[in-house]
Design a protein around this nucleic acid. Structure first.
Lengths: 223, 223
DNA sequence: GTCTATAATAAGATAGAC
DNA sequence: GTCTATCTTATTATAGAC
């Protein structure tokens, strides 16, 4: 009589079965990266599942296998891209700096972040064209973004207490001021560049804008 | 002998021909308006020619008859929307005001314009996703937008000469500062609103932002 | 888990009558 | 100039073998 023969026999037979390089994690990640590229370049409506598949080392079938639909894949792309920013502000350690230097560091960080993450900016633009429909679908995304306001609020308070910043300042207002400039400069570089014949990717202009937004914000806060 | 009989006979025969309400101008305009609505809501890739036709009092065939393709229709939509702004800045008569009041009027105008023209903002966003590809195709659009810089430059000069504004100011920088805030507040209201749980259409907040950008710009210019 | 082939449908563009 | 019907292609999604 053979008891539990099956279990002991399996492992030996499983190996020889042509298991090339079945790697679910890697395949999923591979699809996600390809999707980011496609969605960034084409938007949700413009993106083609076939095109995503072509950017992949796997097939279209796998996209549906892992993500069920184009829309759900898009939501996961959003979550990933938004997630990449999480915590980065926390690492700025603004509380170790003087209020003025803290603002300067935060502004410069925000500027650099947008400048070097065109993909993120484009996805957010696309998402606004959809009235944030997909961002709203994700419970993950909403849970972020609160750390920025807290950090900023701390710096503002210290500055006001020290008398270098005026009283009555609001963290969300200041964040809006900083974000709008940093975001717009990237999101609208093509139309603005065409209409006024300037090149926003020019390093010199970039540096000038970086300094400019710092000065602008600091003047806004000034007592 | 009958000389020029054809010309005199034509008008009488043309009328009885069942010309219901053939109005090329009106039909064209009708299509263009429908297209604006559709492109604003869906973007270029998302817009459906069938959907545009449904918004029309005419048929899909007419869209191709007048505009040849979806893309060309889109370009004409862009031209129309950009064109609507032309000249409006010129009517501001900034030269009649003090420099500070001139800036205030320009900022408030820009703010109000973006706030009440969400359609324009959305189309520009969409256009940036296409890297201004279609704006570049239009020779009409580029010819605009120069009046703003001239008007602004005049105010800045007068302010600097009067000693109320600091020297070394650049019109494009100031325009960028104003535009970015006014544009971003409208373009990103959905994601920003969702992430920070605020409603940008709230009248009170709107007034607050209007005052805020005025103050921000004036502080930036201050000597 | 992965592939190829294909179904089902949607969408841009056009034919041809009036 | 305008309409209805349709052609053609592209695209999302799935079936079924391995």
């Amino acid at each position: 009589m053979t008891i539990t023969t099956e279990a002991s026999a399996e492992p030996a037979e499983a190996a020889p079965r042509k298991s090339r390089k079945n790697n679910p994690e890697k395949t999923r990640e591979n699809i996600l990266q390809a999707a980011i590229t496609e969605f960034v370049q084409q938007g949700l409506a413009g993106a083609r599942v076939d095109a995503i598949a072509e950017r992949t080392q796997t097939s279209k079938r796998m996209i549906y296998y892992y993500f069920a639909s184009k829309e759900q894949l898009y939501v996961e792309v959003l979550e990933k891209v938004y997630g990449d920013i999480r915590g980065t502000e926390a690492k700025l350690r603004l509380e170790e700096l003087t209020p003025v230097e803290g603002i300067r560091r935060l502004v410069e960080f925000t500027f650099d972040h947008h400048d070097s993450n065109v993909d993120f900016v484009r996805l957010v633009c696309n998402e606004n064209l959809y009235k944030a429909e997909y961002v709203k679908q994700s419970s993950v995304i909403r849970s972020l973004n609160k750390s920025v306001l807290n950090a900023l609020d701390g710096v503002l308070r210290r500055g006001t207490d020290a008398g270098v910043f005026r009283p009555g300042l609001n963290a969300m207002d200041v964040h809006l001021l900083i974000s709008s400039f940093c975001f717009y400069r990237v999101s609208n570089k093509h139309t603005f560049g065409e209409l006024f014949q300037v090149d926003f990717s020019d390093a010199k202009l970039r540096g000038h804008h970086r300094e400019m937004i710092c000065e602008s914000v600091l003047r806004f806060l000034q007592a």
